[in-house]
Amino acid sequence: MATATFRIWRGDKAQGQFRDYNAEVAAGMVVLDVVHQIQMEQAGDLAVRWNCKAGRCGSCSAEINGMPKLMCMTRLNTLALDKPVTIEPMKAFPHLKDLVTDVSWNYKVKQLIPKFKPRPADAPDGTWRIAQEDVERVQEFRKCIECYLCQDVCHVLREHKMQEQFIGPRFLVHVAALEMHPLDVGDRLKDLRTQFGIGLCNITKCCTKVCPEGIAITDNAIIPLKERVVDRFFDPLSKLFRVFTATKT
């Protein structure tokens, strides 16, 4: 059986360093398998977050050879094993221990977003009639597993640390899912422009590239939301129209 070297970040909030571990590798293995093996045989207290091991729960996000990825879906045969494979925690969040970061900021952001608000039911039985094609558009956004890799790679959060002004791609996708929901009558455009900071995104599409669910974050969620904000707040004709009809802004 072949062996390879894995260079894993070890440490706590105060200090840390890479440590090399040699591990046996076999056909079909993913990075999370190796981490578990090292945990079982060489480093019992190695901290790693994981759950489903099938790319569904979005717990095991990390940076593998510098690329934000799910450890459970990264097969070893996609990595060069002749040199050490580096495994590090996500950089955009406060570090806790080894491969684990504090992602609680994301949970606080979600609370800021006004909840789903459906239109009155269509049918006498208190339910709605919705066409499949209207469902599908939003289902793309609802595939999100909240792995926060898009947040990790977004330079507004990662380099510029603008967590106070910008909710990040994950939550722009969440807002898109609500705004484009066929039943929703809520209005989040003003929030998008102000406290959610949609203007800070300059569509470099880094988030789309790392999404393990293949959601077209920039093209299908962020750009259409930007267009809605522009239509509402910056289009002179509709602004004038609103003055006369006194609709909400």
Partner: peptide, 20 residues
């Protein structure tokens, strides 16, 4: 199930627009 829909869950649909 209908309650989940009222809270925002989006199920696949039948041809007449009900939950598949």
């Amino acid at each position: 199930v209908r309650e989940l829909e009222a809270w925002g869950a989006l199920f696949d649909r039948t041809n007449d627009g009900r939950i598949l």
